[in-house]
Design a binder for these strands. Sequence first.
DNA 1: TCATGGCGTGCACACGTGTGCACTCTGCTC
DNA 2: GAGCAGAGTGCACACGTGTGCACGCCATGA
Lengths: 345, 345
Amino acid sequence: MADRVSIKDIAKAADTTHSTVSRALRDSPLISDATRERVKRLAREMGYTPNAVAQSLQTNRTNAVGLVVTSIADPFLADVVKGVEEVAQPVGLSVFLNASHNDPNQEIQVIETFHRRRVDGILVASSRIGSNHLDRLARIDVPVVLINSEAGEDSDFLHSVTVDDQTGARQAVRHLIDRGHRRIGYLGVRNRPLSNERRRQGYLDALAEAGIEPQDDWVEIAAPAGIGRDQDVTAAEALTPSLLSAGVTAIFCFNDMVATGVLLACKHQDVRVPDACSVVGFDDIDLARYVTPSLTTVHQLKREMGSIAMQMLHDLIEGKTVQNRVLPPRFVRRESTAPPPRSDA
Amino acid sequence: MADRVSIKDIAKAADTTHSTVSRALRDSPLISDATRERVKRLAREMGYTPNAVAQSLQTNRTNAVGLVVTSIADPFLADVVKGVEEVAQPVGLSVFLNASHNDPNQEIQVIETFHRRRVDGILVASSRIGSNHLDRLARIDVPVVLINSEAGEDSDFLHSVTVDDQTGARQAVRHLIDRGHRRIGYLGVRNRPLSNERRRQGYLDALAEAGIEPQDDWVEIAAPAGIGRDQDVTAAEALTPSLLSAGVTAIFCFNDMVATGVLLACKHQDVRVPDACSVVGFDDIDLARYVTPSLTTVHQLKREMGSIAMQMLHDLIEGKTVQNRVLPPRFVRRESTAPPPRSDA
DNA sequence: TCATGGCGTGCACACGTGTGCACTCTGCTC
DNA sequence: GAGCAGAGTGCACACGTGTGCACGCCATGA
């Protein structure tokens, strides 16, 4: 009952028209102070709550944005989403959350849904979408900000915020080299091809700088069954023995989940970390501090990525122009790295 | 350009009226097969995407639900949200995600936003809201499902799905007793009072069954600075020494995060787990398998809670009646529990 | 006294879609 | 041949809000 009250009802109660009520509630200077106050008081008393649906239809603005992530249960993305939320809420933007699970059908469906709902902008933290569905995104005619999956040739509606994967990877591997390692492995993933390629390249850069010839059997690329933590861990666990038997004394991992899988595998094989083998992760999710040994890793500004991306999208919606952002990684040394068992000359 | 096409435009192209187009697209039996096909083909060719905003205004259904969580970065809630998503997407419901951070102002604002947007239902995974904002929720006149925070006296619009905290806790503590422990501590949290109280009660039940007199200094209740993982861990870490010096040989923790804090504290104090002290968690988040030693804990059906809650909400929206659900916990034994160091007679 | 101007209000239309009702047309039946 | 049923379509209104424009009123000034 308190629900169904519209500005028309208020108008009736105030003995005026809905136009006046609308203007009074929006503090239009056209309205006299007396009626403005009278209308506002009535609105309060009658328990009026504006109908955002009708407003959207009229103003052609929904004040809603779409957010696609590959998986919500990914702790990395959870932090990103948190950052998004922290900016969206204060500026009055609502967020439609959708997962894509790297499934082409769901990706299409999600974009379609955002279009139908006439969102004012889209945030993508799901690497495949940026590249694969450009045409579909373009048709919506709405600003898009990609997170950790660059904007290809910069079109005028596609923007991005990323971390400098390659530099982060190079720093991490250089640390291992500085500690005396020469035989260093890379354990990557197949289902996030862009980041994986950049981090692998950083790994190769560091080896090259140190004059180390990379060996084929130092590199393994896991193909996790799905998306998210569990699969990364399991897939990495399975591939670790092969790397160890290739004789590496340190393993640089695509992310902390993969590194955790390596830790578990070492535990089962009684390979002591870091004494017998050093391990380095990427992302610096909370987990990195909780495992034993705690993970040396590359810190990403996860929450900041989310909030910066959301701020960019907000600016774009307001018609401002924005600059793409590349955030700096930060190397974090913890307990999972040490010099190699015996120095390899 | 492909955007601004409405059913009126299609009507013009098909040399008919928007009424016919509307009916044709909705497969109304009033329309002849010929025109239906013609309209549908034109709609496709012109790149028509229905305007959900206008549809909502007309039908008084938004096909959107609101989801409030205390924090998105909480791994427990992340799984719940995932379950919600998995049900919502297929049935065509969109999800507005909002965080409350246990902040009364934000809680009010979130509910207000959901009302303005005329969501068809609300999902609450933020314990405080159920009890504190009943009046506000009632005013929206929309079904509400609470997750892990019961529905008080069951009103007709409030429903819930919870886990049986008390039984889970009792099972966990009984396991410790079976292993031979007599001096068992409880490390709880202050900012989730309902669950905390139920788990503490289960702890007391188990002690009572074994004829053990609980001691005041066996129980500590942490007051984490905020919500989510990090604060739980830190707060628990700080309180662990006090429990250890009370002479307990095992600690039952409010959740796995708290347990992780205990593990860290023990590590720093060189107290070996489980040899010198056993530790039990709650929730069975992924982390529980990754720490060393892996955590003995109480498994919760996290994803299922989300999907069941969403299914309930969907049924309620469709006008069906539903039953509140209490999910069974499942005790999981891992590496963090063992008999006490020397048997206390 | 009349023109002028400003202030406050109401009228009417718009946004895009759904739907009850009236209308037209075709073909059939008596 | 008139009447009628039924199928297909269009008209008009509704949903709740925002806004350009015209109107009425009052005060001011010539």
